[in-house]
Design a protein around this nucleic acid. Sequence first.
DNA 1: TTTGTTGCAAAGGGTTTGCAGGAGA
DNA 2: TCTCCTGCAAACCCTTTGCAACAAA
Lengths: 144, 144
Amino acid sequence: MTKPRQAPSQTPSLRAAGMRQTPQREAILRVLQSADRPLTVDEIWSAMDQQRSGVPTVYRNLERFVQEGWVESLFGQDQVMRFVRCHSTHHHHHLSCEQCGRMVEVDICGIEPSLAGMEQSSGFRITRHELHVFGICPDCQAAE
Amino acid sequence: MTKPRQAPSQTPSLRAAGMRQTPQREAILRVLQSADRPLTVDEIWSAMDQQRSGVPTVYRNLERFVQEGWVESLFGQDQVMRFVRCHSTHHHHHLSCEQCGRMVEVDICGIEPSLAGMEQSSGFRITRHELHVFGICPDCQAAE
DNA sequence: TTTGTTGCAAAGGGTTTGCAGGAGA
DNA sequence: TCTCCTGCAAACCCTTTGCAACAAA
């Protein structure tokens, strides 16, 4: 058993993306960088402690980070936006722990054969797919 | 989580579920029944025309229908709830047309081998998964 | 008649916008 | 200095709640 891929992605360069380097932006990225699960805007905002900013600033910057592909936005049944640092820039899927909420990225996909079958039976031309897998993470299994 | 269900595609029996049979409920079910894609509460409400009710009534009844397993709720990137009539009572996935929004249910799944691989590599014990596939439906392909 | 439902209005809560002041470069 | 960015407050909008009137059974 190998551990989930820990992509050592580095803090993206604000300057290189044509953005000014502000303490608020750095704080938001730092918070997301160290999170192991999707965070709400409120959680990000709270975690910015000494560098706390206005909530609208968090929203505005997250939007830009998503555009840059640095961050991914997720929506759950509770109607609240959540954000995660993307560790992989390629096609990947999410594996969430139903107990602690921790989420890891999974590189293997391998569902193309199933998609081919769906194309056949439905007549659709398939362009993309989203797979979200849920389970119990190793830590929570051990705690049981 | 889901209750025992009705035969697919028939109007569910309100009475059998212990609900009173009101024109509002019948109208909501009728609208969903004839829809070929997920509808927002506003869309359902608008389509109830002569039987128009208050929006809260639509929300309250949809909530019950979801509990009964008659209707499925979906959430997209636009933060708005959408609802579809469940046609299949088994494990199934959704295939949505990116152009017209039409959605069909797909019975075949067949991604278990991939999930097994994810279990191996991640150490998670996988309990469930959600797959949403996007593409272009036959009609939109023909219209191109 | 009994009690579940509806409708209205108002509240709730997350997200977005406008705009003036502030700070990167 | 020149813009971009931030912060505050207010606006937005979808969703939920409270409560009295209504209607299914």
